[in-house]
Design a protein around this nucleic acid. Structure first.
Lengths: 336, 336
DNA sequence: TTGTAAGCGTTATCAT
DNA sequence: ATGATAACGCTTACAA
């Protein structure tokens, strides 16, 4: 069995209360501090998190809940989140809900059972049925930060990006380079984030009085073969587009691969602006012009906001932080 | 505050002991069972996992420890693992260690603090410094299942695949189709798994008396641009290879993309056999011939083995299960 | 500053 | 079959 605080106390010749104080960073006689440190060292003592949590206060644990483990954006953000929170001495529990609102409900319950001190929820793919339990969190005073988007009736802090504006700028960039026939390869449109990204596309097209050919407006998950066939079809129309704007990681890679397969050169034959910037994308030649999400900043803002609430600081609550994307100008857009 | 077992007992007019028995599925008077169920219902009672764990027995929690969150193989396996273990009423805690043995040590400590009932460790990228704590797990009687590979001195169950044989068969397939100049795009060679995959390549080449041109034997992580440049260089040699065998997901995608970029047609100009089969790969045209890992079976075997040990069944311990990969014959290999 | 003891929510061991 | 109570490892009054 692992050593307990009693073992440490005995070995140090002190009482458990004193050891506990040491563990919680209170002041004490230097001499005793050393004794305790030595005892801890010798016994390889590690405070038992369960007992700590049971006592009712903090478990020093934060739940990070994401739609799926299989998407790089979520995992990249989670990785950074973990680093940041670890520095504040918090641990994270990762829950994926497979883009399934029903499963989400269950995961949120699990997290609550574990008495997490806070919740960071990537809020795309959340369903109406998940709202009540989120309310429960808030009622119980467990801070919640929503990432990606807000949720109806859930009054809490939110960290998001300027989806519509990001799209607008990307499409505008193409238009300013004299493209007029621009296709959209969008994520699943039941998700608010992708509705916004599509809206930005429409806004740009309308602003510049360009017609939108609905056959060029695609949407889907782009994780299976069928959907890529749709991209290929875009080029079977008589006057195919001269540029494509893809609105997420998969769509971007899939589109680039599809273009290469058809021996359409980027950007000579067709221009492409993608979305997201993760390592594997740089395998693509030429380096793509991309809308880059500030992944690190999203993580940092979410973590800090949550920690602030956990610390009891509810000034300026609730806050919605909208972060700006960057256009990474590289070599996949050609001026016509 | 959430309802406790005392609240339930009071509402049902019974003692906590009785309610506890109900929760643990022991027999009891039908009439009381109903009372308890109703009370639980009305109060929305959920047993507190922390208190349960503290009491010393099972936490019904299993740690799944993986080298990185950012690789699809690990996340796909973890997703399935979670499903399977959930059906056995276990929860999982996911820990990524960023391919950093030092971080792994820390994560293994975290998992132990949480008193997990078992550990599933993806053992590539584990360092010598991590071995002692693994021993601690075993000494404390916490079952450990190693996935991908065994570890020196760690006597426990292992679930792995036939890496060398898989490679042998893939390369042999190319040879039988009369390829003689075959390049290898391998994962990082400090990892045992990739040493084995490379060995299979060498074995096949030697078996068929084919010379290996070391300039065509590449290895790396293939998650950044520089490494892809190396693939391109393969084709700048005077007599370039006619076929490539790539040994993991990233290497496969990266190679396919690179080939397309150079307008080398698959399989007309060059044949390709890849490794792993996940959805996004099917974006590539033509459908690639692949070595397919039995991801689901890996997860199932690991989970079942672990559950068996947790249940105290140590017959046939330790066991090493070597699962067979499948060759998915599709359209990326040409008979010369 | 330090020691003592109650209490967190459960399970398990006793009696009853 | 059920009820009362100690114990799990920790934190936190409160007392010394």
């Amino acid at each position: 069995m692992a050593a307990t605080i009693y073992d440490v106390a005995k070995r140090a010749g002190l009482a458990v209360g004193t050891v506990s104080k040491y563990l919680n960073g209170r002041s004490m006689r230097e001499e005793n501090r050393l004794k305790i440190e030595q005892a801890i060292q010798e016994l390889g003592f590690k405070a038992n998190i369960l007992a700590r949590g049971l006592k009712g206060n903090r478990t020093m644990t934060i739940a990070v809940v994401i739609p799926t483990y299989m998407a790089i954006f979520f995992m990249a953000t989670t990785t950074i989140l973990e680093d940041i929170l670890e520095q504040a001495n918090y641990r994270i529990l990762i829950f994926g809900f497979d883009r399934n609102p029903q499963k989400l409900r269950q995961k949120l319950n699990l997290a609550r059972e574990r008495m997490v001190d806070g919740l960071i929820l990537f809020a795309s793919y959340v369903g109406a049925e998940d709202l009540p339990i989120l309310q429960t969190y808030l009622q119980e005073g467990i801070p919640v930060v929503l990432v990606e988007q807000g949720l109806p009736g859930i009054i809490t802090d939110t960290v998001r990006i300027d989806n519509a504006h990001a799209s607008f700028r990307a499409v505008e960039r193409l238009i300013l380079d004299h493209h007029t026939r621009i296709a959209l390869v969008n994520g699943p449109e039941e998700v608010a984030v992708f509705q916004e990204r599509r809206q930005g596309y429409y806004d740009a097209m309308h602003t510049y009085h360009l017609p939108v050919d609905e056959r060029w407006v695609l949407s889907g998950t782009f994780i299976n073969a069928g959907e890529y066939a749709a991209i290929r079809k875009i080029f079977e129309t008589p006057q195919p587009p001269t540029a494509i704007y893809a609105t997420n990681y998969h769509a971007t890679i899939g589109t680039a691969v599809t273009l290469h397969e058809r021996h359409l050169r980027i950007p000579e034959d067709i221009s492409l602006i993608g979305f997201d910037h993760f390592d594997p994308m740089d395998a693509i030649e030429p380096p793509l012009t991309l809308v880059e999400q500030p992944v690190e900043e999203i993580a940092r803002m979410s973590a800090n906001l949550l920690l602030k609430r956990i610390a009891g600081d509810y000034a300026d609550f609730p806050q919605t932080i909208t972060l700006n994307t960057k256009m990474l100008m590289r070599d996949s857009v050609r001026k016509i």
